[in-house]
Design a protein around this nucleic acid. Structure first.
Length: 677
RNA sequence: UGCGGGGUGGAGCAGUGGUAGCUCGUUGGGCUCAUAACCCAAAGGUCGGAGGUUCGAAUCCUUCCUCCGCUACCA
């Protein structure tokens, strides 16, 4: 393993439009915190960088919705999240923000360097422009009718009703959410980073030189590289963000994905005047902690930017985690399906380490995992209380009883003593190896094995019995139990900093050097320990029930919200209505469109003609079951090509609130082509 | 749909060719220093299904099913 002079650890910048939840913690911030705490304990030169990502369209939308400025939004969540991290002991050296002056300068300079080196290509394209407001509209600023489900409040990038992703020019009757006017297409110029140019280099750098990356990360990169990279726009027409620092770029800002990772650099600048040695010296090891949604930015785009700039180092590893679910359901901010950090601390004050422990022990390192309150309780009661807390308690109580809190001297050891002491040293190595390779779950389990070892040692040695026959021997036993306790404060420090601080206070021990772990003489004979308390408390069923009830209530209110029928549409004239040619028809043939999940190709008799219609009903109707059925169709809809088949018309379907489709038919059989009015 | 990542005892996971392992839970026993905590033992798996390669497969190949993420068809 190469030895580096210093470490630069970055954690994904949380987006400042909402609070932090357990998914963020488990995926990114707990691993990065454990890693940096460990490196610091080794006495290495390490800095941990994070901050709020404060640009981008969703923040401006949220601001508009609440009638405040974007700055107010980011100020709010920046301080909430900064505090949440502090409260949980996530020890960044700096928690900065991308609305800082130093970040504006850094990002502008970065852009200019690439610009002057001719690394960008320029291209103009047609985008929607709001003539009343006098600005270009980002996708999210355009609303209109969803061509799929008829929802009149679909956004330019996605319809939130049916989940379809859209592009603005697909919307029917698009209108600007800024002024309400109908936008027009207008030419606009943007700068692109030609990722394709870096493809050969990226292929070598990742696919050949970094085979050691986690399989999910490597696989995702390989997939992108195999498909071929496209130039990517680095600017947007928007007024919230960092202005593009060149002439003729009025009203244009850096695209948020370009500006955000540079935030790592500017935060470092803000932290130390020595920032360049962390970013530009090959002796620095840079590690990005992120979630799986961020892989492409940190493994492909940001490295390409750094490479294009030329003077920066590249990440040595990008240990991305998968996602955490909550009680079998995706965590979702908008559905309030989450455990928010600030709420957790209100319900479980002082129990940061319990959450840290259960999230790390169940971290989604190789696949999506599920957080359940029952598991949380079990981890606390059966592991933290029963194994770690109990061992510490047994040891300290016995020491106080027998020796009045004075560490007894160790006499001659027997073979069992020796093997326990050797095992202690070996556990340190295991924890270390696991941490170095970003296997935090495993590292934590190994650390817990030290407490298990201690429990077993006490039970085997039975000092409470031996004290009656051979008090000298008990001194040795208790000395060893106390050495194990002192060791626990070191190996658990990265994982459970709050509890270990408590424990160090009880045993008057403040040696936080990783190199001391495995040492069997941490507490000298005669060393005085204090009266202990309990390291962890049991969590009763009622507390867990309160949490699950809370979630059940959330689910219920979501269902009620979802059960609302689609809002009514605007009034139309009778003329409008008569334009629609609705008639009965019969399905003659039906077959599945190959390589699709939802599409059926139908041949139908409309009374006027026989025609083909492609319909997205395959999930609800089997082809053979619907041949011969009489249905209703819109006969005069503009033909459209779907998966290479021309579809002439649309079959009427009733869609209920969970998206189930049911055919609209007549109650009695009528002849094909009967009009419906 | 395409691509990526998963599917291993009740739960959560490890295990990339050589007798299937860990933590928790369960059952039985022991101990009493300890927050009914601790220690020992046992039960529990045809390693998603089906084919194949091999002396030998959870592990390699083919194919299918299924879950998650990104992506795509719903006129």
């Amino acid at each position: 393993m190469k030895n580096y002079k210093r470490y630069l650890v970055t954690s994904a910048l949380p987006y400042a439009n909402g609070p932090i939840h357990i998914g963020h913690l488990a995926g990114v911030y707990i691993p990065s915190d454990i890693y940096t705490r460990y490196l610091r304990m080794k006495g290495l030169d390490v800095i941990s960088i994070c901050g709020s990502d404060e640009h981008g369209v969703p923040i401006t939308l949220k601001a508009r919705k609440e009638g405040v400025t974007p700055q107010e939004i980011v100020d709010r969540y920046h301080s909430i999240n900064k505090k949440a991290f502090e409260d949980f002991g996530i020890a960044f050296d700096i928690y900065s923000r991308t609305s800082n002056k130093v970040h504006y300068e850094t990002a502008s300079d970065f852009f200019l360097t690439l610009y002057n080196k001719g690394e960008f290509t320029e291209k103009s394209s047609e985008q929607y422009f709001d003539e009343e407001a006098g600005c270009f509209l980002a996708d999210r600023y355009i609303m209109g009718t969803c061509p799929h489900c008829g929802n009149e409040n679909a956004y330019g990038d996605q319809c939130e009703k049916c989940g379809t992703s859209l592009s603005p020019n697909e919307l029917i009757n698009p209108h600007s959410t800024v002024s309400g006017s109908k936008p027009v297409l207008r030419e606009t110029l943007h700068w692109y980073l030609p990722l394709d140019k870096y493809e050969p280099w990226l292929k070598k750098w990742i696919l050949e030189d970094h085979k050691d990356w986690k399989v999910n990360v490597y696989g995702q990169c390989k997939s992108w590289l195999d498909q071929g990279l496209q130039p990517r726009a680095v600017s947007r027409d928007l007024d919230w963000g960092i202005p593009v620092p060149v002439d003729g770029a009025k009203g244009k800002v850096l695209y948020v994905w370009f500006d955000a990772p540079i935030g790592y650099i500017s935060a470092t600048k803000e932290l130390t005047p020595d920032w360049e040695k962390y970013w530009k010296d090959k002796e620095t090891k840079m590690v990005h902690f992120i979630g799986k949604d961020n892989i492409v930015f940190h493994c492909i785009i940001f490295p390409a930017m750094l490479k294009a700039e030329g003077s920066y180092i590249l990440p040595e590893n990008v240990p991305a985690n998968e996602f955490l679910n909550l009680e079998n359901d995706k965590i979702s901010t908008s559905r309030n399906w989450a455990v928010w950090l600030h709420e957790y601390l209100e319900d479980f004050p002082g129990k940061q380490d319990v959450l840290r422990y259960s999230l790390c022990a169940n971290a989604p390192e190789t696949k999506d995992n599920d957080f359940t309150w029952k598991d949380f309780q079990a981890r606390n009661n059966n592991e933290l209380v029963a194994i770690l807390g109990n061992f510490v308690n047994r040891t300290l109580v016995l020491t106080n009883n027998y020796y009045d809190g004075k560490v007894p001297g160790r006499g001659k050891t027997d073979s069992n003593d020796d093997s326990v002491l050797n095992e202690m040293a070996r556990i340190k190595e295991y924890v270390e190896t696991s941490l170095e390779s970003f296997r935090f779950r495993e590292a934590l389990k190994e650390a817990m094995n030290l407490a298990r070892l201690g429990n077993k040692y006490l039970t085997d040695a039975e000092p409470w019995k031996v004290i009656k026959t051979n008090p000298e021997r008990v001194k040795t036993i208790m000395n060893i139990a106390l050495q194990i306790t002192a060791n626990l404060t070191i190996v658990f420090e990265p994982f459970l900093p709050f509890s270990m601080e408590k424990l160090r206070g009880w045993i008057n021990f403040n040696e936080l050097k990783w190199s001391k772990a495995g040492n069997s003489d941490l507490l000298a004979s005669g060393h005085i320990i204090n009266k202990p308390g309990l390291l962890f408390d049991k969590i009763e069923d009622e507390e867990i029930t309160r949490q699950t009830d809370k979630l059940i209530a959330t689910k219920k209110s979501n269902e009620e919200a979802g059960a609302k029928t689609v809002p009514g549409k605007a009034v139309i004239t009778f003329d409008d209505f008569t334009k629609i040619d609705i008639r009965t028809a019969t399905i003659l043939e039906a077959e599945k469109v190959p390589k699709t999940t939802k599409l059926l190709k139908l041949k139908i008799d409309t009374g006027l003609d026989t025609r083909t219609i492609v319909s997205g009903i395959a999930e609800y109707y089997a082809p053979e079951a619907i041949v011969g059925k009489q249905i209703s169709i819109v006969a005069n809809l503009e033909p459209r090509e779907i998966k290479g088949i021309e579809s002439k018309g649309m079959i009427l379907m009733a869609e209920d609130k969970d998206g189930k489709l049911v055919m609209v038919t007549t109650s009695d059989k009528v002849s094909n082509g009967s009009t419906i009015k």
